[in-house]
Amino acid sequence: MIEILEPSIVTLNVNGVDRKVTVKPSDTLLFTLRNELGLTGAKPGCENGDCGACTVLVDGWPIKSCLMLTVEALGKNILTVEGLKNTTIQKAFVENFSFQCGYCTSGFLMVCHALATVQPDANEAVIEEWLQSNICRCTGYEEIGNAIKSTLNQINTMQG
């Protein structure tokens, strides 16, 4: 077990790279990503677990980074939107106009990306369950739904 009682330098694996960062025991993962690592793709929208704008993947699963302490993420693989490179879901978001202001987008992308990886055969009900974790105030959600559905379709036809 590691014990962190004061600001310490730790190693965090973000987007496949080990990064050395200074953390206080009370720092949230969201804070460390944004303020220490300059990865501002994850956004604060409520810092209370309600909006999902801060979503990143931790060992492949969507996590609201405002609710996780950085020290809890040690030894885990963190993927942020900056780590997505030309993925199907990003293209689908662009083509389907799945965002307007773009503030919620990183969070939605991470949830969708995880879903496409973890459960590519997800049906409507599963998609709905996953995507209810996040809020978008600009779109009508339909555009986001179209993007995830087209992504899952593509994955399934590729595999099928």
């Binding site: 944004r34 662009v94 106009f97």
Partner: peptide
């Protein structure tokens, strides 16, 4: 027409006021 800043918004590169710390 795909919006000009679209790819900045799907890569986390788009900067909002609170992002330049």
């Amino acid at each position: 027409t795909v919006r000009k800043e679209a790819w900045d918004k799907v890569t986390g590169a788009a900067k909002y006021t609170g992002d330049t710390i």
